[in-house]
Design a protein around this nucleic acid. Structure first.
Lengths: 233, 233
DNA sequence: GAATTAAAATTGGTTAACCAGATTGGTTTG
DNA sequence: CAAACCAATCTGGTTAACCAATTTTAATTC
């Protein structure tokens, strides 16, 4: 499931229907956090869908922290408060698919932070890993080859060095969609990559020097070039 | 599944084992993006696990955009390039559970951005929704009640008004864990909430005036109070 | 009548059989 | 020889039966 599963689900709306019915049930029965939901069997019968579909919907709500399944016991509403739970349910149902702009905006935000954190927190091992991805990138570019993947691995290595697991996870979630869109819109073709080498080197040097402000500046420059290439063609 | 599923999986490591085996298989068979994976049945037999476990592992990798299942056809490696795919697989296997610090850091980063975007992009309807959550928050606080949930719904309403679906999704993902940790560490108990009212009002006014810089400043003030309360007790 | 224990029912998880649509290979047909 | 066709096969998805752990209920004991 790509990111779309957060909105569409596997079956193009079936999950959404089930979540809506679950919300109605919670409202109708006035279920509160900590309460037990009816069993999967009862829900599948009540909603007229398969038990697997019910399970998938429950898993999705578990992912968002609203439900919690206990083996051989039942599915419970998480202890996040009734109002928060209901508000979040509504928000989840209204989630839209992220467009390219949304992804790029978020990526830039995340990376301007991860590069600062990486400057402060990177170990020597992190630094070496980043260096390796940078060398792989350089080799590809100097041989005139496409290096979009190596580019992104460099950025992911920085995210990992930031020591912030949440941001690292989020970067991993959006990266494949970024790649897909880059290839779709032919961003990052060969010629601008030569500039990219120096930009990457600058970022690496700033992280090595443990200068967060400089690192952020260099990352900003890097994204500016990307942006220009992206929107001026 | 809470956020931990991104690292642990449902069965505390079974999924991780399967993903490692999938990685080895991809290496061994030298599978490239676009190639078809062996069928779920074959994989479950080859790995000595149930087909459901294989399906869950595949779903997880679909979520991260590395695989793509086509009904009645097969599971394929996404077109994100072989190097990116392999690098991401390694990163996913190494993901750690996010601690409280990681969550708060990410939340602040996201919200300082969403509040700026909301200032620029909010419709009248968005504004009204934000107002409603603020009023609900005020009422609770003025009655001396706990208002953590209403607080967070206010922030989620801003995220929604930012019109950035990715950031909105990420906010929804981290919110339940934030709530859980807040209650765990007794952050945000009643007395500081009175300050919170004015801070929320200030943020609301900035969004209403469509002044992104002011909105960001007021949000920063809001988080500073939170931080102080959080770490000085 | 209260505490203890055992058995019956209920639960999420697992397994295996089944389904409809897609794929494939060989055959037929022009 | 190529294109069209069809049936056998393979696919992810679905369904239903099954499992072991848990929870509830009822019986037993003091």
């Amino acid at each position: 499931m790509r990111m779309e599963i957060l909105t569409k689900g596997d079956n193009e709306g079936v999950q959404k229907d089930i979540i809506e019915k679950l919300r109605d049930l919670i409202d109708y029965k006035n279920l509160e956090p900590g309460d037990k939901l009816p069993s999967e069997r009862m829900l599948s019968e009540k909603f007229g869908v398969s038990r697997s579909n019910v399970r998938e919907a429950i898993q999705k709500l578990e992912f968002f922290g609203i439900l919690k399944s206990k083996p051989q016991s039942g599915t419970f509403i998480a202890n996040i408060g009734q109002i928060a739970m209901k508000g979040m349910l509504e928000d989840i149902l209204k989630l839209e698919d992220p467009g390219f702009k949304s992804l790029v905006e978020t990526r830039i935000l995340l990376e301007l932070k991860t590069v600062k954190l990486a400057s402060l927190r990177r170990t020597e091992e992190d630094l070496q890993k980043i260096r390796e991805t940078l060398d792989a990138y350089k080799e590809k570019v100097l041989n005139g080859k496409d290096a979009v993947q190596e580019d992104l691995l460099f950025h992911l290595a920085i995210a990992k060095a930031s020591k912030n697991s949440t941001m690292n996870t989020f970067m991993l979630i959006i990266t494949p969609e970024i790649i897909t869109n880059f290839e779709k819109y032919h961003v990052c073709d060969s010629d601008q990559s030569f500039m990219g080498i120096q930009e990457h080197e600058d970022i690496f040097e700033a992280i090595k020097k443990q200068d967060p402000q400089l690192a952020r500046e260099k990352m900003k420059v890097h994204f500016k070039t990307l942006y220009q290439y992206c929107y001026n063609t």
